[in-house]
């Protein structure tokens, strides 16, 4: 089947089987390899992306359910000015070590910060509980997200979710 969706603010189309994983479509069709397959069964969070503004696991999203929706990946976050600054501070504070969980972690983190600009420790822990990190013990991630200056946390952190549809469908 052919699906149309908004990917990082741009209208795109993809051809595939209805049950193809969004993760594979992103990685193999669009060559966006930020999202990783850590487990392939929804347990690790390394494949986290935003679907219609909410965090989801792209290894569990079939292509059929992407039609007409908006997808934001870490590459989209990195492409905005504020997103890039947020990511750089995240690295500076030790939020990434091996980096394999990082694309998922920073998306869960960005989503949290947009909803709660000054999250408590518990809010951070709850919001990121679905992202396994095996390197940091989560402490540096906690510090990075708790200390993020509010100035960056407006709607321009993430790419627009509603780009013009080229085909009008």
């Amino acid at each position: 089947m052919k699906v149309h969706f908004i990917l990082n603010g741009k209208a795109v189309e993809a051809e595939g089987r209805p049950t193809d994983r969004l993760l594979d479509v992103l990685r193999h069709v669009f060559h966006l390899t930020g999202a990783k397959e850590g487990c392939g069964e929804g347990e690790c969070g390394a494949c986290t992306v935003l679907l219609d503004g909410r965090t989801v696991l792209s290894c569990l999203v079939p292509l059929i359910q992407v039609d007409g929706r908006s997808v934001i990946t870490v590459e989209g976050l990195a492409a905005t000015e504020k997103g890039h600054a947020y990511l750089e501070r995240f690295a500076l504070k030790g939020g990434t070590q091996c980096g394999a969980c990082t694309p998922g972690i920073v998306l869960s983190g960005a989503h949290l910060l947009q909803e709660h600009p000054h999250p408590s420790h518990r809010e951070v822990a709850h919001a990121l509980a679905g992202n396994i990190c095996r390197c940091t013990g989560y402490q540096a991630i906690q510090r990075a997200l708790s200390e993020e200056p509010e100035a960056v946390l407006d709607s321009t952190l993430l790419p627009a979710a509603d780009a013009e549809r080229e085909d009008g469908s």
Partner: peptide, 25 residues
């Protein structure tokens, strides 16, 4: 299909050989 959080947990071949689907969402 609904949220697929259980149904999509299957190996590559099972997904490739999946029956026809409709999307309840």
């Amino acid at each position: 299909l609904a949220g697929c959080t259980d149904w999509m947990v299957r190996d590559r071949l099972a997904r490739a050989d999946a029956p026809p689907v409709i999307d309840l969402l």
